[in-house]
């Protein structure tokens, strides 16, 4: 796989984000993990504006891990924006939500989520899910070239 990999976490809950960052620290070597707090900030990150202007510090992610329920711009609104951006819409985006509502799951896929992972409550379970996520998306899947 060419290039260094990176993951963008879009999550407003500091506790959930902490679990994710810890999990990735344990299961991933040589992968940059960045976190933003809501859809608006994710948008700014991907557009490379404001504090995200430096692409070396804030590279376009190999894959996005997206919470659904967030203030300002939620996960669905973010997906709608992302899939309308010609240069960015091919970035694989995986919803990571505690919702088990079939309507949420279906809507996420309808709006172009690449898959839907159920948010885990413990550190160990989070790590297990993220190990599978990282192996799948960063090692075994072909990734679209960005820029």
């Amino acid at each position: 796989m060419a290039g260094k990999t990176s993951i963008l976490i879009v999550e407003d809950d500091a506790g959930d984000a902490y679990f994710l960052e810890k999990a990735f620290e344990r299961v991933l070597a040589n992968c940059a993990v960045h976190r933003v707090c809501d859809g608006e900030e994710a948008k700014a990150y991907l557009q490379g504006v404001e504090k995200f202007a430096d692409r070396r510090a804030y590279p376009l992610p190999s894959v996005i891990l997206l919470d659904l329920k967030m203030p300002r711009m939620n996960g669905f609104e973010f997906l709608a924006w992302l899939r309308g951006e010609p240069e960015l819409k091919i970035i694989p985006t995986v919803v990571y939500s505690s919702s088990e509502n079939p309507a949420d799951i279906r809507k996420a896929y309808e709006m172009g989520a690449n898959s839907f992972l159920h948010k885990r409550l413990s550190m160990n379970a989070t790590q297990e899910t993220m190990r599978s996520f990282a192996r799948y998306w960063l090692e075994d899947c072909g990734r679209p070239p960005l820029e």
Partner: peptide, 28 residues
């Protein structure tokens, strides 16, 4: 590869209902 794929999709992912159901009663 297929091991990674089946573990990811069949053990960790939620799948959508396919068919007539719609997503109009999403809670978000």
């Amino acid at each position: 590869k297929l091991q990674t794929l089946s573990q990811y999709w069949l053990e960790h992912c939620k799948h959508p209902n396919v068919g007539e159901a719609d997503s109009s009663n999403s809670a978000v």
